[in-house]
């Protein structure tokens, strides 16, 4: 019996496809961490919020998918602004652990809200992506995963360009580098915090729509955030390139371990990688050295 290379390629491609969504969500996490130093454990639930808002706009209000998507992103943006202003900003100066626990609570509240509004039953999002099979060489890739990956890659590219060229990107990076110095050159630092939360929540909600389109939605889909947490710890909490590389890496490893060893090995494989990376580079593959670990 010979090894099926084509199958390996297909499994790997599917893994990288999921990895693109990990990278996108990790980007959302990193934006908040970089700008505000808040470890946002609710990122998976914010992703869920985006998916359910999309579901609500399509299924309940019967909007076309693009309008529902815009609506869901808007809901997430408002959620980000309100949360930052009312929950996170008053905690400024408190211990990082306290803020971190608040985000855990925030996640639970979101799960509760979703279950009240839509029950805990899993649901399917309406089909909005092309269903024609995608082949890369000879390898088949599920179209939803392929298109999900493409959208994630496009969004990430837009952000990378914006960070470099837009003046707001400079303000964000300056605030991330030195908060007092950012104030001292006239940057509205609380405004940057707010902006970071809005952008991150919109990005996470977008990822949620894609994740939901691929695998359906349920009130437990926030566990996606657990893999994302592994991604940012491996990549470095404050590193955008780390989020991208870490996302693809974790997606790949999960897919390979899940397929060749069995689903129960997915977590084992990713957490082994996590431990190995932390032992060699405690600040993550691309992270900044000084950052304290939680």
């Amino acid at each position: 019996m010979t090894f099926d290379w084509l199958l390996l390629a297909e499994v790997s491609l599917a893994g990288l496809g999921t990895g693109g969504l990990y990278a996108l969500t990790a980007l959302a996490f990193v934006i908040i961490y970089k700008a505000t130093r808040v470890v946002n454990l609710a990122i998976g639930e914010i992703l869920m919020l985006g998916a359910y808002a999309f579901f609500g706009f399509t299924a309940t209000l019967a909007l076309p998918w693009w309008a529902a998507a815009l609506g869901a992103l808007a809901v997430a943006g408002v959620f980000g602004a309100v949360t930052e202003r009312l929950v996170i900003r008053p905690m400024l100066g408190e211990s990082p652990i306290a803020v971190f626990m608040v985000t855990v609570g925030l996640g639970s509240i979101l799960v509760g809200l979703v279950e009240i509004l839509w029950t805990a039953d899993p649901r399917r999002l309406p089909e909005f992506m092309p269903a024609t099979p995608v082949f890369i060489g000879e390898a088949f890739l599920a179209p939803k995963i392929a298109y999900g990956f493409l959208v994630a890659a496009a969004v990430i590219t837009v952000f990378m360009v914006l960070f470099r060229t837009w003046r707001g990107g400079v303000a964000l990076r300056a605030t991330a580098g030195d908060r007092a110095a950012a104030y001292s050159v006239g940057i509205n630092v609380p405004g940057v915090f707010s902006l970071a939360w809005v952008i991150a929540c919109v990005v996470a909600a977008g990822a949620g729509i894609l994740v939901g389109a691929i695998g359906g939605i349920s009130s437990t889909m926030g566990v996606f955030g657990l893999s994302v947490l592994v991604v940012v710890i491996v990549g470095g909490l404050d590193s955008v390139p780390g989020a991208l590389v870490g996302g693809l890496l974790i997606g790949l490893i999960e897919a390979l371990a899940g397929f060749y060893l069995g689903g129960e090995y997915k977590l084992l494989a990713t957490f082994s990688l996590l431990v190995a990376v932390l032992m060699v580079r405690p600040y993550g593959l691309f992270g900044t050295r000084e950052i304290e670990r939680l």
């Binding site: 003046r167 303000a171 990076r173 300056a174 030195d178 110095a181 950012a182 050159v185």
Partner: peptide, 28 residues
Amino acid sequence: LFHVMEGRRIFEDLSVEENLVAATYART
């Protein structure tokens, strides 16, 4: 009222020109 802080406090990850761009926020 502009404060040039002790230890210079430039944004190390930004380019020289981006440091100046950051300071344009003071002109808002």
